[in-house]
Design a protein around this nucleic acid. Structure first.
Lengths: 216, 216, 216, 216
DNA sequence: TATGAATGAGAATTCATTCAT
DNA sequence: TATGAATGAATTCTCATTCAT
């Protein structure tokens, strides 16, 4: 009996998933490198090693592909944040850990920064109404609120700190330094990305945030 | 009494400087709105009310036009910073004033942020070797160093603060909030750009930076 | 009897080879008529009845398209020369045949002349390093060398004739007359392209070359 | 007594002539290098060191400028030919001298060749009806006819030689070799422009033409 | 599911030419 | 006579997207 040369349905499905994953990764890299406007569908196909037509088959068009990339990228960072178990640490250690994690994540995922910049250049319309995005981020803020409250109760942290403001500050201290490292390096005439400079930055950020939070 | 037959200077066409200025302003707005990749030379010409060919006549090509815009934009912010006279204030007031100025400048010049993001997406190659960029920025850091040193000598500020790190932190706290306000608003489900939210941010940033700097 | 549902090959679109061939022919005509600088990609597409984008899809850019045309054109003339079987003729007849062939080929393929002129205006950079071009031409020279040698041995031809020089002379006598027929007609005030004028030219060229070669 | 700063009328005139001459020379070089289609009015102005507007002032447009260049170039070669005094030489020497002169003139004036090619690409419409062109060339042919007739009468030359055909052949032997030196060098894999190659060509051409003309 | 061929609408850039003085 | 500023119409090339199989 002749063997059907076409793969079994479940294999075909798996291939489909795999192709989509490959396309997403290729698109992420392309968008990260060139921005939404500068990204080229041709290059994405080439990076993916797949036919351009397939991208349209799975993702409809460039905009929706970008949106899919963004969602995937957010999902990833929030997932990793969940793994921090901040509530298992003392409040100051929890804050230090969040700073360090944020810093390292941005360094290890430079695409995250450029993708966010692109999203913001386009006024985040690719995230609009994305309940998912909001849902993904709520737990982190709730955790941070709990950390702050515990610290306040223990007497180590000052009171009245808005966890959203704090999170934005922690992220901002890392983000701006890394996002603008090229212009800043040019402007200040010193390379901000050497190992030494990076370690100094990390300790400076800890000093700033904890200098602010800690009751003396 | 003889009337000058040529029109008043501000109405004159065929004024090279004026045309260049108009093009530069139009380009700045276009690049700010769409990024380097998304900007359209046609639209810049339209915004400027001048022939597209003239842009090439004066600025060679898109890249060089972007570079000219960047340099102009840097010149502007640094010029305004020079007008702060930080050394006439007490160290804490000087820092507060710098924070407030930075925050307000970014709000009043949203193009500054998107232009910098574009420049960084392209790895600041438009600024590379721009001695001018560096020269423009040195005075600010020197002033900030002097403020920190005075504060330390008076006993109000902690010692060992790197003025570059501090400046990057001050800028970063504002920049990230504003640059990413769209994604952050979507993510946290609250509008970060209301008057109230903005005033809260400003006071939070003052608290963070001065909480860090002040000895108590 | 099953009918093949796909259209006959010569009518098929979506045939890469055929499309490339059509583009090449259209480009050859356009370049021949207007030169490399004067040729218009739009017009080539129109002549080909194909989308302009497709030209870039297959040939990268105008320069490479020109190069492809040149190579094709060379291939064609050398192929026809190979069909002359000069070695089957007596040496004088072989030379006469080569003269006649060259003359007729140039007349039937006026594009050959203008294409070569264009190539030379650009210093033949489109042919540079084209091993193929050289390989195509070697056999002809070898054949001519053999003809000359035979003629010398028979005592009909003078000795010491360089086949390359001779070939260049044969080609030049035809080429210049035809290539410059417009200016020459204007200058000498007589139409050089009438049938009578052409036949006189052909017999003159035979007289010149054989008058030179033949021992008498 | 104050000297009038504006030049006297006759000086202005001389300047006008001078400017036209400079423009013509610049245009000749530009057209020779890039052909009519590839020549750029901007570059011509730059080469001339004069304002582009001035070119239009004197020459109306690009076509007429090309025409002016062509006429000047023809005038020059014919003028030099007149200086050969062929009738002072024996017929064979006169022919040899014409060959040598033609060859050297083309070598020293490579622009002549490319300009003629351009003119022919455009079907010599820049020469059309130019009685001047014809008038310029008639004397040469008359001289050559006289040389041929003398040679025939002396018994050194064969009879029945059309001076126009002969002139075209003499020119063609040089012209093709030089005009196509780039493609020929590429094709035959040997540099045709070395001093040795050039001297061999000159002697070959003499052999061909005199081998044809001379009664043995 | 997967692919190579094909396209229309634009995008940057170029160019001959004219304007105003 | 001479010039710098300005322009409209191309021109090459690009890009997201669709077609046909």
């Amino acid at each position: 009996m002749a063997r059907d040369p076409s793969p079994a349905p479940e294999e075909r499905l798996r291939d489909a998933d795999r192709s989509q994953g490959i396309i997403l990764a290729a698109a992420r890299d392309e968008f990260a490198e060139f921005g939404l406007g500068g990204a080229r569908m041709d290059r994405i196909a080439e990076r993916a090693g797949l036919n351009k037509r397939l991208i349209y088959y799975y993702f409809e068009d460039k905009e929706r592909l970008f949106q899919a990339v963004l969602e995937q990228v957010y999902r990833d960072i929030r997932e990793q944040e969940r793994g921090l178990h901040l509530l298992d640490l003392s409040p100051p250690d929890a804050v230090r850990r969040l700073i360090e994690f944020t810093w390292n994540y941005y360094i290890e995922h430079p695409e995250f920064i450029t993708l966010l910049n692109s999203a913001n250049l386009h006024k985040a319309r690719h995230l609009e109404g994305s309940q998912r995005a909001r849902a993904l981020n709520t737990p982190l803020i709730e955790t941070l609120a709990e950390v702050l409250e515990r610290g306040r109760r223990e007497g180590t942290f000052r009171g009245g700190v808005d966890p959203v403001q704090l999170y934005v500050s922690i992220a901002g201290l890392s983000y701006f330094y890394l996002s603008n490292s090229h212009t800043l390096s040019a402007i200040f005439g010193r390379d901000l990305m050497t190992a030494k400079a990076r370690s100094e930055r990390l300790s400076h950020m800890g000093d700033v945030i904890l200098g602010y939070l800690l009751r003396n």
